[in-house]
Amino acid sequence: MTKVTMIVNGKAVSREVPDETLLSDFLREKLRLTGTHVGCDTSQCGACVVHVNGRAVKSCSTLAVALEGAEVTTIEGLSNGELHPMQTAFNEHHGLQCGFCTPGMIMTSVDMVARYKSEGRKLTAEAIRTELEGNICRCTGYHNIVRAVEDAAGKM
């Protein structure tokens, strides 16, 4: 057991956890932040994506104890009061159906748009599709997800 302290959604949290605890389990089981989902066991599906120090990370393949002092943002912490433009865009464009992949999709997309903006690169539909390589959706065929990200990119 190791004590780990991190900032999750703006609040400092401290827990004693077994060393092998994954960040996804830490969030879901220790903090009961169940918006972060686990859809596979080979780090392929991206339902578990959260932000660690501002970057999108697959929480199913990150150890909690490796994140001492890190700032973690989950889907629950993305909006403060008002919805984030990416969340609004997913609703506006019907970018979700069953909702299971959605938290990971949104967290990946927020990071994607921020990166492209900071690098001054244009985020085309083709680039969005390539960037979503690590996020699987079985419901939407991605059509409306790509549209949502395109729209949100203009509003972020």
């Binding site: 169940t34 989902h37 889907i75 629950e76 993305l78 909006s79 609703n91 909702g99």
Partner: peptide
Amino acid sequence: EDKRFITGKGKY
């Protein structure tokens, strides 16, 4: 129903 899903409040 979207609001709960996009904010991580869905209950699976």
